[in-house]
């Protein structure tokens, strides 16, 4: 088990190292003076802000230093939580913008990922080897999983928001509200959250249902299932065992899908102008605010790595074989 976690942590460490390195390298590989071209392309109105930024970034990049010192410095500022200052929302530090946006992104991601996983697994398990259900759940699931997140989001925003006017189509809360710890504000938050959440949930649901259906059919044909059938065990018990075993590869699948799910959440946020990381990234791209973009990138990488580690821990808790230490998880 120690070996298992050791290996995982090594991979996560290397991944983070690589992400930071890429982040450091990409602007330096681009031709010309990155600060000048960045400021030229950025839409910063005030001249004094321009000048302040030039000084600040020249210091930050530290171009007069040897490259390895520049590289070490970038790690130093990273550990201090210094991601630079946003050009788009000058003079707000990037770190502040990101930490303000993260709760919104998490509020969308965590429930939609967990719920779609749980419901999708149940649905897939129900459909497996049952003709009528299988013939309805499976096609619907394939359509859902082939749907781009952003398109379903757009359809729902248009249908429920514009045509029927039931739900708000933009923002994390109404413009007339100021954030506070009141029931009214909370209800308003929930109201704005429901559509983006639902569209994320639905697209992810299809994939989990298909995955579970296929794994559980495989499990129902496995030796232990055959043995139990030969001993006259009822289908209920066999299905329960099969489900329990089929959940394990689905947990691994959850780890593998995290990147896709996060990407889905980012574009969904953009459709609904939801004030999370996705909307920040859009703003960064439209305004050529590379520091904001790079900060968001590191935040996402870090978040995905942490989530991966949590999933590893859960896997060890759920699969006795990893604890016994005779076999490792598939991932």
């Amino acid at each position: 088990m120690r070996r298992y976690f050791g290996r995982k942590l090594l991979i996560y460490g290397l991944t983070f190292f690589m992400a930071v390195t890429v982040n450091w390298l990409v602007p330096r590989l681009m031709p010309g003076d990155p600060v000048a071209s960045m400021l030229a392309r950025a839409r910063v109105a005030q001249p004094e802000a321009q000048e302040a930024l030039r000084v600040y970034y020249n210091n930050l990049f530290g171009f007069d230093l040897p490259w390895w010192q520049q590289y070490l410095n970038s790690w130093g500022s990273l550990f201090r939580g210094d991601f630079g200052i946003s050009l788009w929302a000058f003079p707000t530090p990037v770190a502040d913008l990101l930490t303000r946006a993260v709760p919104y992104s998490l509020a969308l991601l965590v429930p939609s990922i967990l719920l779609s996983w749980v419901v999708g697994n149940r649905l897939g398990a129900l459909a497996a080897r049952r003709k009528v259900l299988d013939n309805t759940v499976l096609p619907v699931s394939y359509v859902l999983t082939a749907t781009p997140y952003l398109w379903l989001a757009a359809l729902m925003a248009w249908g429920f928001g514009v045509v029927w006017g039931i739900f708000p189509v933009a923002g994390g809360y109404s413009f007339s509200m100021t954030p506070s710890f009141t029931w009214d504000f909370f209800a308003d938050l929930l109201w704005h959250w429901l559509l983006p959440f639902s569209s994320l949930f639905l697209v992810a649901l299809g994939g989990w249902a298909i995955g579970m259906r296929n794994v559980i059919i495989y499990e129902l044909e496995s030796d232990y299932a055959n043995y139990m059938s030969a001993l006259g065990a009822p289908q209920k018990l066999i299905r329960r065992y099969a489900f329990r075993n089929a959940v394990l590869p689905q947990i691994t699948g959850l780890a593998l899908q995290l990147g896709v799910l996060v990407a889905g959440a980012l574009v969904t946020e953009i459709v609904f102008s939801y004030p999370g990381l996705g909307s920040l990234i859009l703003a960064a791209i439209q305004n050529k605010d590379f520091f904001l973009l790079q900060g968001a990138f590191l935040f996402i990488v870090l978040g995905v790595l942490i989530a991966n580690f949590i999933i590893d821990v859960v896997y060890v808790i759920v699969d006795p074989r990893t604890r016994v230490g005779m076999a490792g998880a598939a991932a």
């Binding site: 496995s222 030796d223 232990y224 055959n226 043995y227 139990m228 065992y241 329990r244 075993n245 394990l248 699969d319 006795p320 074989r321």
Partner: peptide, 10 residues
């Protein structure tokens, strides 16, 4: 298939 006849996670 006695080697794999028992549910591995029980």
């Amino acid at each position: 298939y006695s080697m794999s006849a028992m549910n591995p996670t029980r």
